[in-house]
Amino acid sequence: MTVVQMKNVSKKIKNHMILDNLNFDFEENQIVGFLGKNGSGKTSLMKIIAGEWSSTSGQVYVNDQKPFNNKKVLAKVCFIQEGNNFPVDMKISKLLKLCRNFYPNWNQEVAESLLELFDLDRTKKIKELSKGMESAVGVMVGISSRCEITIFDEPYIGMDANARKKFYQYLLNDYIEVPRTIIFSTHLIDEVSSLFQKVYVINKGRLLLDIQTDELKEKVYAITGPTKEIEEIKNKFTILEEKHFMGNGEIIVFDQSEKEHVMPENCKRNALNMQDIIVHVTEKGEQIL
């Protein structure tokens, strides 16, 4: 079943185009990544999916319903943002009680084990927690809610590498146990990209790529070889970066063709890691569209 559907969706705030004619949809029970630079529109897009914001134009469907101000959708979505998720004067124990009543699939056992995993003291108020601890509370609520759609918008601010690793591990294992739709936006791409089945790359409010994670490496890669030979094949690709040094060159290409290119004799194709791919793609965004 299609869980999120966007048709010509735009969002304008004070004459400023935040999201520009987005079209995409995806199936339920996948972990998808929303990637892009700061200010690209990721958070706005997540707010629209979560029903917090309306779009200026276009149609948005979440589980075949319009999400904005829709209680039926809200109950199925858990949206964890990078901060200010909870009232600062609330004790963790009170928060747990509220969540148990609010989220229909709430799992208390999961919540308890996450409290222990992150060393959270339930007698503390949110405002008494460090930034990382506060983020851990968000992570705990996001996973324990077991909502049909869980959205994490850079939920790990202040969490150290150990805590982040525990979070990714717990999230994946809980997803394997109870498959559901998870939308995740992050800048720490290499830490989590192996969890994503699909990625959406957003730049200046526009959708640059809508692609299966492992197909990305087939589309964006480096070619190294003698400058002469590089020049010969250059025009077959969209060039994202080009460097030459001592008679040798390296180009980062976006390969839009269906079939594999035959490389000149002394040229080599090298794959890039996910972080580099996203950096190159978002730097040269306009050329891809």
């Binding site: 996948q30 994946l172 192996s194 089945q197």
Partner: peptide, 17 residues
């Protein structure tokens, strides 16, 4: 698929592939 996904911390769809 799930055992591989859990052990290597990768998406189950990738393990299946």
């Amino acid at each position: 698929t799930n055992e591989i996904a859990e052990f290597y911390q990768i998406n189950p769809a990738t393990a299946r592939k």
